[in-house]
Design a binder for these strands. Structure first.
Length: 566
RNA sequence: UGGGGAGUGGUGAAAUGGAAUCACACGUGGCUCUGACCCACGGUUUCCAGGUUCGAGCCCUGGCUCCCCAGCCA
């Protein structure tokens, strides 16, 4: 019996069986602390930590912090929080490339001594020009055959701070005519008189990614270094460096396709722009595809991991539909979010045969039968209640199951009521109130006859309901691929005008008067909601819609939604 | 134009020379005190053209399309 593995696990299994690494499996998640993690990183985290877990190995968390100008401690903190929140544990394997600066420097010196690296004193402009193009070979730097002793001297003076930014760089001596542009004597070190968030002013030369990354992997004993497709060309440098400086068995790099999600953006630059230009409320705006945003939105780690496992891993560039993510979230929430009643757009209903002062506290189950969980709460029924405006239609389509003039529907967990009379505002004609009568025999009784064609609707007692703010989130963009705009257009032009709707007149059942921030509920027939961690207050709860329920209902022969009727 | 990758229902993935499978989406029907959940059924013939083979999504040849590479970013 052999379940099918993705191509990465296939490779890891091959290597554990052949024993090249003595059975060890060591992966790593290597973020640069210069931004917040997003759903694309979540995919990578699930792959790297997931593979380590599946093969009894370990996944390191290593910050690839080699650029002092963009990195910050606040990012390492948020990244650690996000990885933990997602449910992964790097144990004591927390590393920083910036802790390897001394070792990396020594490795660079070895390369120089082996005549495999040299100090280039051309300007950045000259270097760029001499690199050639994809069709023309590059030209060797005039400094390319600088004597080893001179290179050594220059490199140590670079470190000592004898030169200004840009005066020299250290380059690998590989092949200026390589068909692979990345191999045309890649830069290894640059001078940068900048304060590093961890090393302060200890260094004024900093290693480039192409140098620091493979060597950090080798230093840590990584076996499988998994990254995204755009680094395929860099693998040649990776191999060149590690082969020249380390012994077998040594780490190898494998690439997979990064995640693209419909109706959102994933690039750090664009995400940063949304935040800085205040087009969203921050990195944790519930509409953001960041881990922080999804956390505040109410997405669960389990749901996100389920999503990651459902999309799989491959090398084909792809774009995943939001439906896949939302369904994974719903799938997880269905079994863990207790049901409650909320009315978002209230319509007044008076039960005319119910005594004015009678309050009946009904015990309503918090879970549907098929979930199989115990639990219920008390919901008060009174003469005056509120139902959803969209649950009443004066002129309903044939397959309507909700309230209609003269028709019946069950108040969920309570009695059937019949709509005897419809009151309207004389000037606008708008329905203002329903006068109904309830059937005292119908509590807990199975529906029969015509009643079987109706559905149970949510409701709240007018006198006991708690006013609540409900925030309905929707996709941030109006087009599926806002990152791929035609020339001269900005992705910002496609921001959805109503990606957040704030409903202030919502009413929730009294059990939800003081909900603990972070608690999740299913508001029946609406969707899943979370008590906002920032703005919710006891007595004035604020709920974020995590994701709506699926709704297959379309009025027969009409494109008009129930919300637009009556 | 050079080099490196990738093409399987609408979307994401399986099938590792032997009956194209799964999830999501969509459609139809069933169930239901949530038009949810759940259940059943339905649609693709593997980018194109040849070739090898008893047999090809998988192998070979030639095309086509898309992505990545010319930062002292990662």
């Amino acid at each position: 019996m052999q379940e099918s593995l993705d191509f990465l696990r296939e490779i890891v299994r091959r290597d554990t069986r052949s024993g090249v690494y003595g059975g060890r499996v060591v992966t790593r998640f290597p973020p640069e602390p210069n931004g917040f993690l997003h759903i694309g990183h979540a995919k990578s985290i699930c792959i790297n930590f997931g593979i380590a877990r599946d093969f009894g190995g370990i996944c390191h968390l290593r910050f690839d912090d080699t650029n002092p100008e963009t990195e910050d401690m606040k990012y390492v903190e948020s990244i650690m929080r996000d990885v933990r929140w997602l449910g992964f544990d790097w144990k004591d394997k927390l590393f920083f490339a910036s802790d390897y600066y001394e070792q990396l420097y020594d490795l660079a010196v070895r390369l120089i001594k082996d005549a495999k690296a040299y100090v280039d004193s051309q300007s950045d402009e000259e270097i760029r020009k001499a690199r050639g193009t994809i069709t023309e070979p590059g030209i060797g730097s005039p400094y390319r055959s600088r004597p080893v002793a001179e290179n050594l001297d220059l490199f140590s003076r670079m470190r000592a701070g004898d030169f200004p930014d840009g005066a020299h760089v250290l380059r690998a001596k590989i092949d200026m005519a390589s068909r692979n542009m990345k191999m045309r004597d890649p830069l290894l070190y640059r001078i940068r008189h900048a304060t590093h968030y961890r090393r302060g002013d200890a260094w004024c030369i900093y290693p480039m990614y192409d140098f620091a990354h493979p060597l950090s992997d080798a230093i840590e004993g990584i076996t499988h270094s998994i990254c995204t497709l755009e680094f395929e060309n860099n693998r040649a440098i990776y191999d060149w460096l590690v082969d020249n400086l380390f012994r077998e068995p040594r780490p190898r790099q494998y690439e997979f396709a990064r995640l693209n999600l419909d109706y959102t953006v994933m690039s750090k630059r664009k995400l940063l722009q949304l935040v800085e230009e205040k087009l969203v409320s921050g990195w944790d705006d519930p509409r953001m595809p960041t881990i922080a945003g999804m956390r505040r939105r109410g997405y669960t780690p389990e749901g996100i991991r389920l999503f990651a496992s459902r999309i799989g891993v491959d090398k084909a560039n792809s774009r995943v539909s939001m439906d896949l993510l939302e369904d994974a979230i719903r799938d997880d929430l269905n079994a863990r979010a207790p049901r409650a009643m909320a009315v978002l757009r209230p319509l007044k209903v008076t039960i005319t045969n119910w005594p004015d002062d009678r309050v009946e506290w009904l015990q309503v189950p918090s879970w549907p039968r098929d979930i199989g969980k115990e639990g219920s709460r008390k919901v008060p029924l009174t003469r005056e209640v509120r139902i959803e405006r969209t649950d009443f239609s004066v002129d309903p389509p044939a397959d309507w199951r909700r309230m209609r003039p003269g028709g019946e529907a069950r108040l969920m967990g309570a009695y059937f009521i019949r709509c005897d009379e419809v009151l309207r505002d004389p000037s606008s004609g708008k329905v203002t109130e329903l006068l109904c009568s309830y059937d005292p025999e119908s509590l807990g009784a199975p529906a029969k006859g015509e009643r079987k064609k109706t559905t149970a609707i949510q409701w709240v007692s007018a006198s006991h309901a708690i006013p609540a703010e409900v925030r309905l989130y929707d996709r941030l963009f109006t087009v599926a691929d806002p990152e791929n705009m035609e020339e001269g257009r900005s992705f910002k032009e496609f921001l959805a005008p109503a990606s957040m709707e704030v409903v202030r007149e919502a009413l929730v059942e009294p059990a939800l008067a003081e909900p603990p921030p972070g608690d999740r509920f299913q508001f029946v027939r609406h969707g899943y909601f979370i008590v906002d961690e920032v703005d919710s207050r006891p007595g004035a709860p604020v709920f974020n819609r995590i994701v709506g329920l699926k709704d297959k209902y379309r009025p027969a022969g009409s494109a008009v939604k129930p919300a637009d009727r009556s």
